[in-house]
Amino acid sequence: MITLIIIGSIIGLISSLLGISGGFLLVPILYHYFISLGVPSTTAIKMAIGTSLFTIFLNSLFSLYFSRHQLDLRSSLHIGIFGIFGSFIGAYLTIKVFPEYVIKKIFGFFLIILSIYLIFKKHKDIENFQGNICNKKLSLLGFITGILSSMLGIGGGIIVIPSLNILLSVPIKRAITISIGMISIITFPGVIIYMFSSIGEFDSLYNIGYVSLSTSLTLLPFCITFSKVGAQIKDKINTKYLRYLLAIFILIGGLRMIT
């Protein structure tokens, strides 16, 4: 219980501060939590992903509200809408086709390389850049993010922000607000699929499909509270330090996925 409260607070803070959902932290914690409650391992990992997506979706709505005056809705909607198609594919692949651990290993190494690049690559943010981003590139990014989001139980910000910043030269703070705007869109299809997939009953977890309502609703109040804190302090932090902080969390996510 204490662990869920702490991780809920961390996820709420980084969701608004860095635009990442924290699913890479939440999924392994929920997996071990469900195992400790007697859920079979093959079911526990899918419940961890489904519950993570459900929690991230609800929390993202509050992050969206707290950051509503800074959003880039055009870019967020473009990534989110194409991410919907990818989300359905990713959820299907995880439930029916691929073993989740293989995807985790590959993606984990990718995140580690990405975090190192963010830390050591010299990059100057143009703080006031407001130009439109290429729609085709946003579409492709959204589709790939949607697949990985549903396969790994993440909100997609850990993919979108560094991709926008490194590949498309979008300033880090704008990339964060784009990510905040698209997370609720891109996680919603995965939530629906996991909720309506049939599994055995676990009465103490009050599950709907692969989503444990009791677990998610324990996390949510702390996520929401600290989401507001993150939104309040984001603009007060230097862009350079936001990059370093983002890189650290991406590195942690990569390490968690390969271990």
Rank of each mutant, 00 (worst) to 15 (best):
I2N: 14
L4K: 02
I10F: 05
I10T: 07
L13R: 01
S21I: 00
G22Y: 00
G23P: 00
L25F: 05
L25D: 01
L26M: 12
L26H: 02
I29P: 00
I35H: 09
S36H: 10
S36L: 11
L37G: 07
G38E: 09
P40G: 11
S41K: 08
T42A: 15
T43P: 13
G50F: 06
T51A: 07
S52E: 02
L53F: 06
I56V: 11
I56G: 00
L58V: 05
S60C: 12
L64D: 06
Y65V: 15
F66P: 05
F66V: 10
R68H: 12
H69N: 15
L71D: 03
L71G: 04
L71K: 12
D72H: 10
D72K: 06
S75F: 01
I81E: 10
F88E: 08
L93Y: 08
K96D: 15
V97G: 07
F98M: 14
F98C: 06
P99C: 08
Y101I: 10
K104I: 00
F107A: 15
L111G: 03
I119M: 09
F120N: 07
F120V: 08
K121R: 12
D125A: 11
I126S: 04
C134R: 13
C134K: 12
K136C: 13
K136H: 15
K137Y: 08
L138V: 08
L141V: 06
G142M: 14
T145P: 01
M151V: 00
G153I: 00
G155A: 09
G157D: 10
I158T: 10
I159Q: 02
I159P: 00
P162M: 05
S163I: 13
N165D: 11
L167Q: 11
L167M: 11
P171W: 13
I172W: 03
I176V: 11
I176E: 03
G181N: 04
G181I: 15
S184Y: 06
I186L: 06
T187M: 02
F188C: 02
P189S: 08
G190V: 01
G190K: 01
I192G: 04
S197R: 03
F202E: 04
F202M: 07
D203A: 12
S204P: 07
Y206V: 08
N207I: 05
G209M: 02
V211M: 08
L217N: 15
T218H: 06
L219A: 03
T225E: 11
T225N: 11
K228D: 06
V229D: 07
I233K: 15
I233H: 14
K236F: 10
T239S: 08
K240L: 12
Y241A: 11
L242S: 08
A247S: 14
A247P: 06
A247Q: 06
F249A: 07
F249V: 03
I250A: 06
L251W: 01
I252S: 04
I252M: 09
G253T: 02
G254E: 00
L255V: 10
